[in-house]
């Protein structure tokens, strides 16, 4: 029995809600993002690679993996080679906590929300590190901008992720999801819906997507912190960006949209566990696609902010707003939700 459980755990980590599924699903999400973004701009988007261009992100990754891998003179070799691996590993590791095929992730313990948020902070530090070891002037400028933006979005992101935990009275993702199954998705609760908006905006900044792509602004500073990365290292960075998008969409799903549980009905407790896992993962896919479509719409609707505009937006509006609802949440929750 013990052996069977171990094998199932290994299969879960490697195959189904784990590494392989997350990688391919993240690439699929990139296609969804690019295609929807192109349609909003009245373009076709990826078209000839596979049916409707669905294999485009995979083709990009394979091409980059097969390209020459340049390590320029003057870079810090160990850091330059290590940074993409760190980024990819951390993204995959933090995805283990996201509930995909059941109400809990593959890894789950008390207070795991804090661990996930902590790892998501390390992403920003790795980006700064990667630009710093590149020792190129464009990378340095991009790194400085990444650092500036980093101190802007991190606090509202944390606070908005803590608000569902306050309402559900738990810092464990599993218990937050189960509270939402027992009651209703938190996006319907009053202060949490504002927190959802803040979370999405800060996710865009974390992913360096369009209104906040200041650190890699290609019209100004070549490619920002990623300028010197080519071939395999760039492929790993692209993959880790996609995985980060999946992680943030999955976190938004788990915290605000009721996790992988279906809307409108609850699964019976005596259901076959494999069938339940299938239904959960289908609903996870639906909800994460909704989150990604919201992000693409915002991307298409706004032009890039200047660095001072972005920072002012974060410090003057989003941070006070998130702190205000942080104070408001216990009062509202005491009267209505607890």
């Amino acid at each position: 029995m013990e052996v069977l459980e171990l094998i199932l755990l290994i299969l879960a980590t490697v195959l189904f809600p784990g590494v392989v599924f997350c990688t391919y699903y993240a690439l699929f999400l990139e296609w969804v993002d690019r295609k929807f973004f192109a349609r909003l701009q009245n373009r076709v988007g990826p078209w000839i690679t596979g049916p409707k261009g669905i294999l485009q992100p995979i083709a990009d990754i394979i091409k980059l993996l097969a390209k020459e891998d340049i390590t320029p003179n003057g870079v810090d070799r160990a850091g330059f080679v290590g940074a993409p691996f760190f980024a990819l590993t951390l993204a995959l590791f933090s995805l283990m906590f996201v509930p995909i095929a059941s109400t809990s992730g593959i890894l789950s313990f008390k207070g795991d929300l804090l661990i996930v948020l902590f790892i998501s902070t390390v992403f920003g530090i790795i980006i700064i590190f990667a630009g710093y070891v590149s020792a190129s002037r464009f990378s340095i400028v991009g790194t400085a901008r990444a650092g500036l933006q980093f101190v802007g979005y991190e606090i509202p992101l944390f606070v908005s992720a803590i608000i569902p935990a306050l309402i559900a009275r738990s810092l464990t993702l599993k218990e937050i999801v189960e509270w939402q199954i027992a009651h209703y998705p938190l996006i319907l609760c009053f202060p949490a819906m504002i927190a959802f908006g803040i979370f999405i905006v800060c996710s865009l900044a974390k992913l360096e997507k369009l209104p906040f792509d200041i650190p890699e602004a290609e019209t100004e500073i070549v490619a920002g912190w990623a300028t010197e990365f080519s071939g395999k290292k760039l492929a790993l960075f692209r993959l880790s960006t996609d995985l980060k998008m999946l992680l943030l969409a999955g976190l938004a799903t788990a915290l605000f949209l009721g996790g992988p549980a279906p809307w409108g009905f609850t699964l019976p407790a005596d259901l076959n566990p494999y069938l339940a896992a299938l239904i959960y993962s289908i609903w996870f896919v639906i909800k994460t696609i909704i989150v990604v479509l919201i992000m693409s719409t915002l991307k298409a609707a706004f032009a890039r902010y200047r660095i001072d505009q972005a920072l002012r937006g974060f410090w003057r509006y989003l941070t006070p707003l998130s702190l205000a609802i942080l104070i408001l949440t216990p009062i509202v929750a005491y009267h209505f939700y607890w």
Partner: peptide, 22 residues
């Protein structure tokens, strides 16, 4: 590169850095 002719349908993207380009 822009909507009328849109070559992203062939997977062509405009890149800023020579390290990323083919």
């Amino acid at each position: 590169l822009t909507p009328r002719f849109d070559v992203e349908r062939f997977g062509i993207l405009l890149k800023g850095s020579p390290r990323h380009a083919d």
